[in-house]
Amino acid sequence: MSGLLALLDDVAALTKLAAAQIDDISAQAAKVGVKTAGVLIDDTAVTPKYVHGLPAARELPIVWQIARGSLFNKLVILLPIAMLLNLFAPWMLSPLLMIGGVYLCFEGAEKIWHVFHPVPIPVDAENPIDHAHLEKQRVAGAIKTDFILSAEIMTISLSSIEASSLWTEGLILAVVAVGITALVYGSVAILVKADDAGLKMAQDGYFEATRSLGRFIVRGMPSFMEAIANIGTAAMLWVGGAIIIHGLEDFGLSSIGHFVEDLGARVRELTTVASGLLGWATEASLSGLFGLAIGLVALMLMSVGTRVTASFRTG
């Protein structure tokens, strides 16, 4: 009998330990998820464009294909690479984060540049659109873009984890990968089908209030999607700029980071209403402006490189 009681005590102790580990993993995953919010917003804002112009019946299957590709990117490719880097070359995390930050700034600056210098889309009126081929191209392009954003998410996550063991670290990264993918592509699925749901409500709603809400959704979705895209662009610049600023501090170049933090602290001191929010907004805006400057430089260098490469090919 005493042996059975001792066994039950051991089981209870192991259960408590497992519960504590699960709580720690959940808490760390939530904290890491907050730090990747900017990239998540951009990922959510970018994806709906890949289903634009395709049959409505294919929208959700396409989102599901991209989500599966995103999970494969994170769990099968990026997670093992991130763990190996953290184990054997942790010094590479900060440079890789900065490279990813430059890419985010480049993408954000390119979007802003195209607002003022739009690129015309060629239309071939003689040949009808091959939706099946277009779908494959869109899915492949979306998964490639997701790979870069996922790499940034996993690197940010890895640099934010405080784990006692390699296995705990891996579990936290896996939880973050699955949770973020579900959040992003679940949100995308809702966004791309919201206008269809609104149209259904407007046409078949039993109550006038339901029909009015449906019409409001249909009218408002284009503006809402544009707002999401703009928020995503701002988030890219803010997150990318902040990553580069913090990375420079690791290399002893802390003047920019101190300037941003000092100005944010000064705003908090001088304001009495929503001082924390205003201080954060100041720091985010300065990081975004810095990110825009970096992105424009990267865009210029990319343009010059493209022209030089083209001249060599023609020459």
Rank of each mutant, 00 (worst) to 15 (best):
D130E: 08
D124F: 09
R138G: 01
H117S: 09
D124R: 12
E126Q: 03
V139G: 02
K144Q: 14
E135V: 06
G141V: 05
I143R: 05
E135D: 06
G141W: 06
G141D: 00
H117N: 12
F147N: 03
P128E: 14
P122S: 03
D130P: 01
T145G: 15
F116L: 14
F116N: 04
V123C: 00
G141R: 10
E126V: 13
F147K: 02
P122K: 01
A142T: 05
F147M: 03
L134S: 08
H114Y: 12
I121A: 02
A132H: 10
D130A: 06
V115C: 09
P128S: 06
I129W: 00
I143N: 04
F147E: 00
I121P: 06
V139Q: 01
A125T: 12
I129G: 07
I143L: 06
P128R: 15
H131T: 11
D130C: 06
I143K: 11
D130F: 00
D124A: 03
A125Q: 07
H133T: 09
E135R: 15
P118F: 10
R138M: 14
I129H: 08
I121R: 14
D124S: 04
I143F: 00
I143W: 12
I129L: 06
N127Q: 13
D124I: 05
V123P: 00
H133N: 05
V115W: 15
A132I: 01
F116C: 00
L134E: 15
D146V: 01
H114A: 04
V119L: 07
Q137R: 14
V119I: 07
P120A: 05
G141E: 06
V115D: 15
A140R: 13
E126R: 07
N127W: 01
P122N: 10
K136M: 03
F147T: 01
P128H: 05
H133F: 08
G141C: 10
A125E: 11
K144R: 12
P120W: 02
Q137G: 07
E126W: 08
I129Q: 01
D124G: 12
P122D: 00
H131K: 09
A132T: 10
H117M: 01
G141N: 03
